[in-house]
Design a protein around this nucleic acid. Structure first.
Lengths: 246, 246
DNA sequence: CGTATCATTGACTATCGTCAATCTCTGTGG
DNA sequence: CCACAGAGATTGACGATAGTCAATGATACG
């Protein structure tokens, strides 16, 4: 009867039965949010912290000239705005990519969770992993050509989504537009389109409106030099059953 | 008799006299490090956490193809590798830009600091500010033209260095090469050189081997749309004496 | 002085962005 | 069942931005 968060935290720290019970009693009252909705707005006061239970969302920042940059993707088990715990104002917008189940927690609730050392430790780790992903994104955008950039991005999505059980046969739901992809990777829509075609022509990936399939996982990783260490996913779930062997 | 860290943390949380005493007794045995030295190496085990007391350093990640990306700049009062507190392996290299004074702390020492709520709160905030700067860097590299990118970078350096008292008359020590600048901003050395010339020709900045002078602070900020909120510098130091009005 | 490092330049190329048109798909209303 | 609208994908043509290569200056330091 574990929820995503319990499983995720459990991979990062040794939770006792009391920790799990506390988490189970806290993480409830999930709210359904449709795709392409705003969860929290850049510049707005941060009263609540949002946790994704299912679905995907992203953080994005808007510039004066009307463009924007997507700065992170959020998966099941991720907190959208943990910094609202301490900072007063959210400095990015959070939008859903797919339909999501979201839990809203007050600061007080989260602080009470953080009083348990194992949970605090795991939350710390999540925050650090978040920063680590940001640094790798910086490397990706700053120093990789657009084809490797796309490739690296898909490798990351594959790996992170797999870690929360959202990948089947190297395929995952990913209803992203090419404009959004470009906004995430610092590319124009047109260029994103062309590079995407290259990756398809190279039989690395297959894409449709709603999902992405990685046709050649090893090849794609080799192509962009993907090394998943920076994701800090912790030890693999002990309960795993999928994708054994071959 | 406050050190940089005490002052910085004091701006982020309300430290009691005991907090300050603890910090003062902990932050000692500073080590001098020359410019262009490695403090901690990508991939090495993280035994100690490093704190910059004076000087500047930077974090950078290396790619397989020999290029690198500088992902953060570290100023007095910044921790270089707070994540070593929890993660076992540093995933970036830390190098000094100038001669630095550095304090090395064991995990145990840092954990004992974090037992005091005000200090823990301030450390939290520092970590969040760090992530916030990373997100803004992503915006900068992903979505700003190279001239605005450079401009924004200099605005950030000016603001951060000023907050730790390292700016006099809009001028600060900054012995960075154009190659390093390019590595930080996702640009080639040659292009960095040319854009730098534009900024000089526009009378925005003056640069020499060792320092940067911002000739037109308001103009530079307006040019790139700089908004310092993301730096989360907290309330200005109560003890300030420099740069009052006139 | 000689050497090393960095800055600067020119010429050329590659990558990437912009604009505008067209195509495809999906869902809707009739 | 079909026409139509709208969103997103795709194309081509073109231009701008940025990278590469290689040579030349400038500066600092021993």
């Amino acid at each position: 009867m574990h929820n995503v968060l319990t499983r995720k935290l459990g991979r990062l720290a040794r939770l006792g039965p009391e920790d799990e019970a506390l988490l189970a009693s806290t993480i409830k009252d999930a709210k359904a949010v449709r795709a392409n909705q705003v969860i929290a707005n850049q510049g707005a006061a941060a009263f609540e912290i949002h946790l994704i239970l299912s679905g995907m969302a992203y953080r994005h920042k808007h510039l004066e000239d009307g463009t924007r940059q997507i700065v992170s993707f959020l998966m099941p088990g991720d907190f959208c705005d943990l910094d609202g715990l301490i900072l007063s104002e959210t400095e990015y917008t959070i939008s859903t990519l797919t339909a999501c189940t979201v839990v809203s927690l007050t600061r007080r609730t989260l602080l009470s969770l953080a009083e348990r050392p194992a949970i605090a430790h795991a939350l710390w780790l999540m925050e650090l992993a978040d920063a680590s992903i940001l640094r790798e994104s910086l490397v990706n955008i700053g120093r990789r050509r657009s084809d490797m950039r796309l490739a690296h991005f898909f490798c990351e999505m594959l790996t992170r989504l797999r870690s929360v059980g959202c990948v089947v046969d190297d395929r995952f739901d990913f209803p992203i537009t090419q404009t959004e992809l470009g906004d995430a990777l610092g590319l124009s829509t047109v260029h994103t389109n062309r590079i995407l075609q290259q990756l398809r022509d190279g039989d690395f990936i297959a894409v449709d409106r709603k999902s992405v399939t990685i046709l050649d996982v090893a090849g794609l990783k080799a192509f962009c030099g993907f090394n998943p260490d920076y994701l800090h996913l912790g030890r693999p779930p002990a309960t795993a059953g999928r994708h054994r062997g071959h």
